[in-house]
Design a protein around this nucleic acid. Sequence first.
RNA 1: GGAGAGAUGGCCGAGUUGGCUGAAGGCGCACGCCUGCUAAGCGUGUAAUCGACUAACCUCGAUUCGAGGGUUCGAAUCCCUCUCUCUCCGCCA
Length: 418
Amino acid sequence: MLDIKMIRENPEEVEKKLKTRDDKISWGELLELDKKRKENQAELDELKSVRNKKNKEIAKAEDKKAVIDSVRELSSNIKDLEMSQKEVENSINEILAVIPNIPSEDVPISFDEEDAKTIKIWGDIPEFDFEIKDHVDIADGLKMLDFERAAKMSGARFALYRGEGARLERALLNFMLDVQTTKHGYTEFMTPYLVNAQSLFTTSNLPKFEEDLFKTQDDLYLLPTSEVSLVNIHRDDIISQEELPIKYTGYTPCFRREAGSYGKDLRGLIRTHQFNKVELVQFVHPDRSSDALEEIVSHAEKILELLNIPYRRQMLVTGDISNASSMTIDLEVWIPTQNKYREVSSCSNCTDFQARRGNIRFKEKDGKLRFVHTLNGSGLATSRLLPAIIELNQTEEGYIIVPEVLRPYMNGIEKIAK
RNA sequence: GGAGAGAUGGCCGAGUUGGCUGAAGGCGCACGCCUGCUAAGCGUGUAAUCGACUAACCUCGAUUCGAGGGUUCGAAUCCCUCUCUCUCCGCCA
């Protein structure tokens, strides 16, 4: 959520910046409502001040009845004004709730995702001297993944991991968590997978993106990402300055309806309703969030480098960054059969946008309370990582060479064969 | 699922015959004094949000005692609904 004070003070500039990420953006009556709210409040304060004074008289008055009668009407007026003030406030909040974060100055301005800026390319793109197969065919041949049976029990876009496939997935998750906790200083969490609407409001998945979420009959939602639960750990908290930066990580499955994304279909694991992800979240001092974004990206990259997967770092354009983000860096891994890089991680600096929605503050040295900055990044999603690993490490016989760093997690085996 | 108890400031904890309580007391924290150092001690201060005034400080007004609604001239205190926590019973991985 943006600070209404900031919008009030320079509306043109804010609107201009927001138009670079959504050309339809507008906030209609927001400023008039804001003015109205202020007027109402001043009047309310005045009326209440009078009422409070009179009420104090009543306590001491001899003839209570006379004074009470004079206040009765005043109170009724106050009640009416309060009602209309509430409506005004609700309208303001509804408008503010769907306005996205302001993009950072450094984000390339464009609505075409192809304009993303490549900042870094790591690793050599491998060449194969045999006919390569995609991850679905290889995994099927090795009985690691079974999409047909997944469809039988759950429908399209679900995965069933089997045997070494399941073990490889589990190995990856454990490996990633171990790296982030032991090398990068993150505290690991296992969080609920069902969360309430308030938590999704904090991260800005609600109210605007409800159609992306699975909702239960108890009004709880399945996590679309553990960013939601990790960020909400500190909802309504006041964090002391010394505790910053706070770094949290956790594995959870992620559930997304992917409504409307049919058609641009992708085989196998690439786009499913349920996938596995290790998430990184940081709460930092506002002065440090740019550095923290760089850091979080490097933490995700470390995983790819240890797995020896070629990747590139992309800075997304204004039109492509997520609602809460002021800047987003994507990591993309090389998928041989598609002959291109595909997103495996998305790291965002949400500045104070989520902190304001979730009321997550810290105490500055001078005692002032300020909103923290929040950042999140995938570290990483296996649904994109596993295909890369399978395809990049395939042999002519259709086997998979297990990356060295994963072998300790795979009972030491060097390859997955029939 | 059933029965009962509770939710107050950064934390603990008074206050529930409605007005003098934004809220005693303690802890913590900040500053000062004291002190060879540390510890202890003494003193002062210490909620947030919105608004008025101001260069700023100060001051003043409004709101907030889990959330929402109601009763009343007036609610932390009374009533209703909801959420959460604890205890006991039931069930159970």
